[in-house]
Design a protein around this nucleic acid. Sequence first.
DNA 1: GTCTATACATCGATAGAC
DNA 2: GTCTATCGATGTATAGAC
Lengths: 199, 199
Amino acid sequence: MVNMTSDRRGSRREAKTVQILTAAWDLARRDGLAGISLRDLADQVGLRQPSLYVYFASKNELYDRMFTDGYQQLLGALNAQRVDDDPRVALSDMVALMVQQASDDPVRHQLLFQRPLVDFEPGEGSWSLAVEFFDFATRRLAGVGVTDTADVDLFTAVIAGLSAQQVANDPGGTRWVEQADRIVTILVDAVARPASSPS
Amino acid sequence: MVNMTSDRRGSRREAKTVQILTAAWDLARRDGLAGISLRDLADQVGLRQPSLYVYFASKNELYDRMFTDGYQQLLGALNAQRVDDDPRVALSDMVALMVQQASDDPVRHQLLFQRPLVDFEPGEGSWSLAVEFFDFATRRLAGVGVTDTADVDLFTAVIAGLSAQQVANDPGGTRWVEQADRIVTILVDAVARPASSPS
DNA sequence: GTCTATACATCGATAGAC
DNA sequence: GTCTATCGATGTATAGAC
């Protein structure tokens, strides 16, 4: 029993799958995630609509592949970023990068962090990447001493808020990206010494 | 020329319109905003699908009415809230109320503050209510001395973030609502005395 | 693996009788 | 103002030939 999907003969199939996935992201950026039509998608990759079912068992499976693909892209960007020696700067860099990523690809941000598709629920395997991402962020927060749930909630809200405003009111820009360092500094200071106790 | 829409004979029509609007919100909460079907909507109000066109010229006009209706609801809640003498507390109260409102009705929050419908663009008249809301928030921020664009951006991001997290991760709860007062205090303090200048 | 053909459902919107 | 009937488009998915 050879593994048919990972040996040499599977490469063509994988390449086509990647091509379809890329076209799906393009269509989602144009028509919205829910607006992806399998006919349009097939046209984009030089296939007839029913032929897509050779590569994906259903539209839901397509969304699932996009979901994992999106997290892989995001984790790739995070891991490619240099980690500053100062944990606070490292956290600020991560927050700025995440807001920047949301600004660069609002549709991906929407699929990963909002719940824009009523019928779509990510499969079990897909969640592992989301967990991996969450662990990454948790470690960065722990680096500056933020471990309490309430404190973590503050930071997740700030990241979500900067991203949401960036996407909704300055798509492609940096208006809220530029606020990342400032607000992280403010929050870290405030959480580090809880009450307003002047030294 | 009498005004047919506001005299006594118009009341039946207005009542039916309100009934349809209420049913539309219910359907949106069940199937999502984009998932509203005019056939389902007609069923809910005891009409046949084509009869809805007596009250709304198109599905887009229905969304437009929901948009203005949503802002009226939100402004109503804000105006009904007691205004604390302390401007900082008044601001905190507003932020907490907005996050609570988002938690109570995520679909309304989605329609008013995100852009979930690709084809829908609010009509001119509808934006006036959005402006009215924005002015309301601006005045509260000015009360604590926040007028610079960058500072205002910080607060709008925080409100958006608390709401987004509340809706996505604790719908119907108060986990992020409870963070409103704390983060407003932190931000007001930080913005009021910009640098970290110990007294 | 790709195709043609098609089933089957649902949608928004319009025409015209009553 | 409400209805029946229907149009025309679009959607996912399947059957079966090649």
